[in-house]
């Protein structure tokens, strides 16, 4: 599914990623943990193609295609979804309109038929219900006036609609109460399938109680310094990152 080799990247001339190697096979959920400033968010932005991140070396292939050569919307159409740590507000843009436009853009790119307003609404309602999100959310402006939890739920709703092949959750758990955390986890778990992978980026182990990863990687100072099973997350929680630093 995703293969990252020797990836290095700079932000404003400062090297943040210093050679990341990571492979996420289809159907697996991997967690990336690491202390603040280790490059976790940079990795998610580089993978999704945000401006301002200069790739200085390495490669990323996504289902055999060179991901780094694609525009952000092409990556989205190819099935890459980023759940933002800080979802942006779009004043005046209705959530329903936004979701339908995005969904149809992605469907069109995949050669699927576009949904009209009624078909979309039916689908959106199903997803909302499954995620225990109020329908009211469709009527509001995208993320405008949303609480932190609502914004994250909106991200999960979008993920449920766009049905990505690879979801990157960038610290989606930060600032969430336990109920919201469960909704996020349910959203990811519902997508679990042989053709779906996820990269869960988190600072704490808490989210991983609900989304149990197949593999856990530790990102420090721009490199993956340790990998292991779910037990690695528990160990980090108990002993902190210093233990890894000592080992690495």
């Amino acid at each position: 599914m995703l293969k990252i080799e020797g990836l290095t990247a700079e932000v404003e001339g400062k090297q943040i990623l210093k050679g990341v190697d990571l492979e996420v096979p289809a159907g697996e959920i991997h967690a990336i943990m690491g202390p603040n400033g280790s490059g976790k968010s940079t990795l998610s932005y580089v993978l999704s193609g945000r401006e301002g991140y200069e790739i200085t070396g390495g490669s990323v292939s996504f289902n055999g295609v060179d991901l780094l050569a694609m525009e952000p919307e092409e990556r989205a159409a190819a099935g890459l979804f980023l759940a933002f740590q800080y979802p942006v507000e779009l004043p005046g843009v209705g959530n329903a309109l936004f979701l339908r436009t995005a969904l149809n853009a992605v469907r069109k790119a995949r050669g699927e038929s576009e949904l009209d307003a009624m078909q979309f609404l039916k689908l959106a309602r199903e997803r909302l219900k499954a995620l225990h999100i109020s329908e009211d959310m469709l009527k509001r402006g995208v993320n405008v006036g949303f609480s932190g939890g609502e914004k994250k739920r909106n991200e999960v709703l979008q993920m449920a609609l766009l049905q990505p092949k690879l979801a990157i959750l960038d610290e989606t758990d930060s600032g969430l109460d336990i109920d919201a955390l469960k909704i996020v986890a349910d959203g990811v778990n519902a997508l679990r399938a042989p053709g779906f992978s996820a990269l869960v980026i988190t600072h704490y182990q808490r989210l991983l109680d609900y989304i149990v990863p197949d593999r856990v990687h530790v990102l420090m100072q721009g490199r993956i310094v340790q990998s292991g099973g779910p037990e690695l997350a528990k160990q980090l929680e108990a002993e902190g990152y210093a233990s890894v630093q000592a080992a690495a």
Binding site: S48, G49, R50, E51, E71, P72, E73, R75, A76, A77, F81, L82, F84, P87, V88, L90, P91, G92, V93, G94, L97, F98, T101, A102, L103, A105, V106, A109, G141, Q158, L162
Partner: peptide
Amino acid sequence: AEDQLFYCRQRGLSEEDAVGLIVNGFCR
């Protein structure tokens, strides 16, 4: 804002559509 454009593009919208959407939101 750059981050508004990027957000829309990450969801699969072309830049032009993203701008159109944001402008229409602005004029709503």
